[in-house]
Nucleic acid binder design. Structure first.
Lengths: 188, 188
DNA sequence: CGACATATTGAGATCCATCAACCAATGTGG
DNA sequence: CCACATTGGTTGATGGATCTCAATATGTCG
């Protein structure tokens, strides 16, 4: 998996100047403060956010509780996938967990650019594939692992999550209660 | 979601003759008997299987138990996504649950065809997006719903699954034991 | 310092797994 | 065509994992 994101990054770096300029011309940089919402529920996700610095998360409300579905760090691409792909209202929020800087690309501009620059179409496919593989792996975890195993897996594979994100959010990301997470940690 | 698969199907129907012929020239029809394996663990998933008739499933082994990850009916596309995308060994099996007829397309031939027929590249993207959205929805279910709720959701949205597939397999698909599923059903 | 968010800990309830016994339908070899 | 094995499903008893509610830290920041 790490190798696939590497492959995507080198693909981007190897893009010809014309394609790169097309991409740059439809992107812009923006800063958000901790707590700002990049996307609200019921809005159509009309932009993608490439995280240049800072931390963000995506979450939705279930019975009034916030369920975190994804955590974003530097070089991650933050979008509400279904809303972005189908251009329909999002059930999710995207929130800055720290001050963040993102590179924003508009959906429609990117669609147009793909039509004239096939390499962007390939890039879009690679990103969709990467996201699909990530989702499958996350599903594997929910399908077969206990809460403790899921926590240990994050600890092993994504220690930066444990180090930089409040336990309340990690618990909802793991699909367990804050109390259970606290007890799991107490038992090492 | 249903609308997106409709969109994909009409996209396919609207393909120009040249593209359609390219697609046909790299596809072939094959029959499997109930119980046959279309893909084994540790094999690279070098083909995609478009189900023309019959039922199949994808599963993997966890502590010796079969965990079903996906169920395929007519017009579904059966692949081990990560293995197919990265062309690396699969952790999953694909098995015919009844006699099935599939249209097989080879990975490499499709890659080549995409290079010369951009519309196939767009089709590939649409299929990847569709799969990603499906995965997100399944993840939502594991993230927030109880076993009973997940069962009722299938009953409501995919009753054909309940009607045509053994409970043992449905239970593993839901991530619960056969006994629990049996008790859920007993309580209506 | 006070206020509000964040985390820990305890007790009881609930969900679900496991183990085991049992039953029904189907199919197969003799 | 019968006897028996196999597959698929049900039911009961018990234990473990996790949730919820509640009380109590601990921390952070204006």
């Amino acid at each position: 998996m790490t190798t696939y994101i590497d492959k995507i990054n080198s693909y981007i770096k190897a893009l010809d100047n014309d394609t790169l300029k097309a991409l740059e011309s439809i992107s812009s940089t923006k800063n958000y403060k901790k707590g700002d919402l990049l996307l609200r529920q019921n809005e159509v996700c009309g932009k993608s956010y490439w995280v240049l610095s800072g931390i963000a998360r995506k979450y939705y409300l279930n019975d009034g509780k916030e369920i975190t579905t994804e955590l974003y760090f530097e070089d991650d691409l933050a979008v509400s996938f279904e809303s972005y792909t189908l251009q329909q209202p999002s059930r999710e929020f995207i929130e800055a967990l720290s001050d963040v800087t993102v590179s924003i690309t508009h959906y429609q501009a990117f669609q147009n650019a793909k039509a004239t620059h096939p390499k962007l179409l390939i890039l879009d496919l690679m990103l969709a594939e990467y996201h699909g593989i990530w989702l499958e792996n996350r599903l594997f975890q929910f399908h077969t692992m206990s809460a403790t195993e899921r926590y240990l897996d994050i600890l092993k594979r994504s220690p930066h999550i444990i180090q930089s994100i409040p336990l309340t959010i990690i618990a909802s990301y793991l699909g367990i209660s804050l109390e259970t997470l606290s007890r799991i940690r107490a038992k090492i």
